[in-house]
Design a protein around this nucleic acid. Structure first.
Lengths: 337, 337
DNA sequence: GTGAAAGCGCTAACAT
DNA sequence: ATGTTAGCGCTTTCAC
């Protein structure tokens, strides 16, 4: 492993000059000729800075952890990419942690942080936020940014415009002629779900409609929750002709259950889910969804964390651009005449 | 950040003693009373070793990279978990890299390694192995283990028993009475696919059948490849009554295309795909699959890498236990009488 | 059985 | 404009 010393010897200068040049320290005045000698020596030797040494010296690792409720979830592809791109641009590495039922204050995070492996952490707490876990995370003093969740204004967070997402989903159904519109929502207490439902209400209100409380199934965000939601709603005296599902995974379950029960989608029932992913294209019919700006959310969340780490400034951000967009596929159609 | 020094002061001993006790160095003779003083001091102070300092000193990071062709792919859930559990047991951290079309010798890996951030790398090169990329990876001298791929016996690798997987899939169809069995295989050159097809042939052979070459669609591992495969096979003069799809994602596409074309699954056509994941349960009908021992594969791959790092020994492993198992769901059924 | 001290590779005062 | 040097926190050899 070639180090600063070897480069310095090769260039016939001191290590400090090499260090200054290689990091292009602005406060350093280095002779043009010296600089080029150093640069070429480093290049010829294939010098790569030693991360551990730098981290030890600077007391920061340029590494952050991204904690997701479930790592291999298609819903997180874009979010992850957004975080990584932003991190890369600032020369940060992202290490992934899966929570998998773990509370956000739990073992993984503290292991990472307290051993000073990461400078901060991006936490997606999952559907329903565990307040105790969050508190312990905050209390630990680790720079942290919440994703898809808010927790007062002392702690940084980044969320998308869930209300707008619910709104465009409902708007799409209204434009197709639907009037009896239901919602398969998240579990009681899910903030994202509450905002999405509020968006649906807003769209309905604009058309002079109100959301029938009997048509809101507060189930959850898993395929199985979606199945339950469908059963619940179809059991209504006057079933809906269209449903907004607050989450893609639940939407997939809902679609499956409906199709499995012989309901013709979209002829008898239209379904639109919030969150888009390739998986929405492998069902029959394909599922209409609302795409959220998750790439942007990831980038914004990283920048918030970076700001928190470097300046100590916290901030709550709502990513509203690009705006939620309906991806029209086969599961939504006009009401029967 | 509390360090060895503070613990030493608190316990009234030297840092070296603290270090020895805290790592329970077997070659150290420490007084019982001293040891307990140190332990409690460390505990009271909440001492956590500084990873960077240790890494610098030991010239190893206890971190490995796991490079996958596509991070948020449901197919990798178990593999990832297997790797992480094994790594955790040896106090290693896993950082994830996505290749996303990147060649295995590419930018990410070299960045990680050459900056001595990781001690080695686990590479899943994806469907079709890029020989040039692999060569450059090997040439770089980085300890590496291939997952789901082999590359001569100089380089470590861990694969599952793909042949057995193809075999049990075909066996399942044969037992249901099918005789005209087709395969939607991976792209030409895909090793995993070749082995899986060979397994199908073996099962057929045992029943005195041979695999009709016209019934092997060499398409690929994406949903779209699966759709193409179905179109190709259904266009045959005598279409198959059952199909083994070499990959779950392709299987999802195949199922969708079949259902979308009005083919009744499983009455007109049975489908079984290799690889299992929750996603197979959200289609209508649910997809019958073959579960592979991916958890074990992950653990074995990590152990191979760990051996490579610590002893320099390379090895090629085939994980054949637990054996591939058919998860019977709705997409397979008896032949029509 | 325990301590002192060197040094891993790097950065940043502080010299010159 | 460039060099010298003191550590960052840890492990480990060597000394007692």
């Amino acid at each position: 492993m070639v180090n600063l010393n070897e480069v310095a010897r090769r260039a016939g200068v001191s290590v400090s000059s090499v260090s200054r040049v290689l990091r292009d320290d602005p406060s350093a005045r280095i002779g043009v000729e010296t600089r080029s000698r150093i640069l070429s020596a480093a290049h010829e030797l294939g010098y790569q800075p030693n991360h551990s040494a730098r981290a030890l010296r600077l007391a920061r690792t340029s590494t952050i952890a991204l904690v997701l409720p479930d790592l291999t979830n298609v819903l997180f592809t874009d979010l992850l990419r957004g975080v990584e791109e932003a991190a890369h641009a600032r020369d940060f590495t992202v290490v992934l942690g899966h929570a998998e039922g773990m509370q956000p204050g739990g073992a993984l995070i503290s292991r990472m942080i307290e051993r000073s492996r990461v400078d901060g952490v991006l936490v997606h707490p999952g559907d329903v936020v565990d307040a105790a876990g969050l508190c312990s995370l905050i209390a630990s003093g680790v720079p942290a940014v919440l994703i898809h969740a808010e927790y007062g204004d002392a702690i940084s967070s980044a969320i998308v415009d869930d209300t707008a997402a619910g709104e465009v989903a409902a708007q799409h159904l209204i434009e197709l002629g639907h009037r009896r519109i239901a919602v398969i929502a998240g579990a009681p207490g899910s903030e994202t779900s509450e905002r999405r439902v509020a968006g649906v209400e807003r769209a309905l209100a604009r058309t002079g409609l109100i959301l029938d409380p009997a048509l809101v199934a507060m189930v959850g965000y898993t395929p199985d929750d979606g199945r339950r939601g469908i059963r619940e709603l179809l059991a209504q005296p006057v079933p809906p002709t269209a449903i907004v599902v607050a989450n893609l995974n639940a939407g997939l379950g809902a679609l499956q259950e409906a199709v499995g029960r012989g309901v013709r989608v979209p002829d008898d029932l239209s379904l639109v889910a919030i969150h888009d992913a390739w998986i929405a294209e492998i069902t029959a019919p394909q599922l209409t969804t609302v795409a959220l700006p998750l790439l942007k959310l990831g980038a914004v969340a990283f920048e918030a964390l970076h700001a928190l780490i470097t300046t100590g400034q916290s901030a709550q951000t709502v990513v509203s651009e690009p705006a939620p967009r309906v991806m029209v596929r086969g599961s939504t159609g006009p009401t029967r005449a």
